[in-house]
Design a binder for these strands. Sequence first.
DNA 1: TATTGTTATACTCTATAACTATA
DNA 2: TATAGTTATAGAGTATAACAATA
Lengths: 158, 158
Amino acid sequence: MTVLRRVDGGEPGALAALVDEAAGALLAVAVHAAEAVQSRVSAPQLRALRIVAEHASLNLGGLADELGVLPSSATRLCDRLVAAGLLRREVSETNRREITLTLRPAGERLLARLQETRRAELAAVIARMAPGAAADLVRGLEEFTRAAQPGEAQEQRA
Amino acid sequence: MTVLRRVDGGEPGALAALVDEAAGALLAVAVHAAEAVQSRVSAPQLRALRIVAEHASLNLGGLADELGVLPSSATRLCDRLVAAGLLRREVSETNRREITLTLRPAGERLLARLQETRRAELAAVIARMAPGAAADLVRGLEEFTRAAQPGEAQEQRA
DNA sequence: TATTGTTATACTCTATAACTATA
DNA sequence: TATAGTTATAGAGTATAACAATA
């Protein structure tokens, strides 16, 4: 009997279709929370702020790489974030060609509000879930995250 | 920053933080798959195509509503999709003020390719997950989706 | 000469406002 | 008059290409 293998051993493809279908609501929460903040800051600006927050010291080229845009685009993006008082742009002390990007306090507060909003919306949904399901979701997501790591790309016979 | 208040055992707040953290990889797959198609079609255009695909008969105002943009923006978006051969724009027979939007075959093929790409990437990750975890993920997501339904919004306002 | 950013130009996406056509 | 879309104009985001400053 292969009852245990009915799902996972059978077809990752079938599970993928289910995940694909069911992930929509989760994405919607992330999007909805972002919209609450986006009245002041556009989506690309928000991404840029998050990237700067995650890197202790970042230059413009590094930000462009992380954003997946060209340096010229990153320059303009930073212009607006600086003008909005969210980002600080300073000439690097070690290399005067480079600029160092850091968040200004207003930028940090904005990111903190966004995270709080997102978690609050997630919590509101989770509170209505069947007891064990939330734990399943966490475990499933964590396993998914682990399996998605580059190091895990062990080519397990597609 | 975030005051992670400890609440009595397994509270939604704590779980929400975990979900928030762990959902990143899942979002990344969706984004990555979309990028493969976005070389030809921009993100807003892709959203518009998906919305048209999901509605048997949709007029321009309806599309604008679904996109969350103004009719004028939707008009321009449709201009480009029509020019790209992905969308069909016809005057409604019942009301000559309205236009009816439908996908052209090339638009349908594009969406089909995107879904296949996304599912293939999901399947590749799922194949590397611990056996039961994929099933947990599906159950967790489905429960999350159910709990996120408007009908389930039994107060719970935080 | 190579690297790091910026400026110039053009196209997409969006909003606001004014407009046309239909009901 | 109200409704459905479009056109005009402007700002943001992005790419390509040319440029300036530093190493």
